[in-house]
Amino acid sequence: MVLPNLSTDEILDGIRQWIEIESPSDDVAALARMADKVTADYEAIGALVERIPGRDGFGEHLLVTDNRHCPPEAVQGPGILLLSHMDTVHPMGTLAGPLPFRIEGDRAYGPGAEDMKGGTYLALAALRQLAREGRKTNLPVRHLLVSDEEVGSGTSREHIEREAQRAKYVLVTEPARSGGKIVTARKGMADFTITAHGEAAHAGVEHHLGQNAIREIAHQILALEAMTDYARDLTVNVGLVTGGTRINVVPDMAQVHFDVRFPSPAIGEEILARIRGLQPHNPKVRLTIEGGINRPGYEKTPGIAALFEHARKLAADIGFDLQDLKTGGGSDGNFTAAFAPTLDGLGVDGDGGHTLEERLYISSIVPRTLLLMRLMETLK
């Protein structure tokens, strides 16, 4: 197989244009501008774009279809789902302030450069090259771009799962991990809020009549943190604590918000049962426990292992050693793995995601685009 001669400069310029349209998850107008640009770029290469209206204050999603490369009889069948997101964690003004687009050596900086406008654009670049060279695929290719991944995919999950159910394979263009590794398993994720309802009282006059909700939450925090078990790859992280009104009032309310990561569905159900079974240390304080799993975990199934081995051989032909790992971070791949073999982390290699040092490595652009392109061409 003769590999195409891709232009790093052309692809990087496309990524730059996407980075320079800021698109935080909570800004519908900004996301609409991003969707306009993605739509125009995809229509310019002859793909069809369906715009899925947003709801509940979140932006729209895009479903791109390009069936020109596969046999006519395969068009309506199971295909390859490319899965990406258009939103970033960076607020408006980041580009003009602390994180402008810039190039320093092999690094291109900017909001979303690594997570994940870089990887999202690679999918377009791969499809564009297929069209330019008249190359063929065995399966139809669909690209779903969602607008709320960074805030939990609450409005896009139904679309992700629908498309995953009609996919034979799912390729997620989240950034690579640990120097270019792709993801073949992810931990499950849950988040909870525990509220302690106590009894207010004057701290100086009737302290003995109060039931201190903050004290109760302190006991719950110790119980929660004790659930972390590194040997089982299980973590419970208390991330936010609130409560009280004034220092001279016994607090009648306090809350703790915490994050749970677990390696398997069985351990996930076990830890959820333990959390939901927590009882107040002070029987005169009432607890309410809210929350649950927001992204299911998945293991490296035989189907995923076979898909990874196929990708590893393609990468070797391209000229690099592809390795995989399991990560505790979540992505929309958590939703698709239950329906179809999923490879995640197929986007650019980079570093500093979600920080003001976010960057992609320019040297990763062509190899990763070629890998996506060869996966589209060879998967059956």
Rank of each mutant, 00 (worst) to 15 (best):
308 F>Y: 15
269 E>F: 00
77 G>Q: 08
328 G>C: 03
169 Y>C: 09
230 Y>H: 14
36 D>W: 10
301 T>N: 11
32 A>T: 10
72 P>D: 12
88 T>A: 01
267 I>G: 04
165 Q>Y: 00
167 A>N: 04
341 P>R: 06
7 S>W: 04
292 G>I: 10
308 F>W: 06
132 R>P: 02
118 G>D: 05
59 G>A: 09
357 E>Y: 11
20 E>G: 00
81 L>N: 05
46 G>S: 06
288 T>D: 12
326 K>P: 12
172 V>P: 01
155 T>C: 10
93 G>S: 11
183 V>G: 01
323 Q>G: 07
132 R>S: 13
314 L>E: 13
150 E>F: 06
1 M>H: 14
110 G>P: 10
165 Q>D: 14
202 H>M: 14
311 A>L: 12
228 T>H: 05
167 A>G: 03
236 V>Q: 00
253 M>C: 12
321 D>L: 13
368 R>C: 09
192 F>C: 08
171 L>N: 03
147 S>G: 13
221 I>G: 05
154 G>C: 07
133 E>V: 02
67 N>C: 01
166 R>W: 07
374 R>H: 12
352 G>A: 07
41 D>G: 02
148 D>S: 10
100 P>A: 09
203 A>W: 09
326 K>H: 10
241 V>Q: 03
16 R>G: 04
79 G>P: 04
165 Q>P: 00
30 A>M: 05
239 G>Y: 10
227 M>V: 00
211 Q>S: 12
315 A>L: 05
217 I>S: 06
70 C>D: 09
34 M>F: 14
271 I>Y: 11
88 T>C: 01
62 L>K: 02
237 N>Y: 12
194 I>M: 05
224 L>W: 00
48 L>N: 11
89 V>M: 05
320 F>S: 04
371 L>R: 08
287 L>H: 03
172 V>L: 11
101 F>I: 12
245 T>H: 11
20 E>R: 11
186 R>I: 02
319 G>L: 06
340 A>Y: 00
169 Y>K: 05
148 D>Q: 10
21 I>E: 15
290 E>N: 14
290 E>I: 06
328 G>L: 07
121 Y>M: 02
341 P>D: 10
335 F>N: 05
243 G>N: 13
264 S>H: 14
259 D>W: 02
159 H>Q: 14
31 L>M: 15
150 E>K: 07
149 E>C: 07
228 T>E: 03
269 E>H: 12
360 L>W: 06
301 T>H: 13
264 S>L: 09
68 R>P: 04
134 G>C: 12
311 A>H: 08
287 L>C: 03
278 L>E: 09
36 D>I: 07
67 N>I: 06
60 E>H: 04
10 E>F: 07
17 Q>L: 09
30 A>F: 03
75 V>H: 13
314 L>H: 08
92 M>V: 15
201 A>N: 11
92 M>S: 09
362 I>C: 08
296 P>A: 10
79 G>V: 05
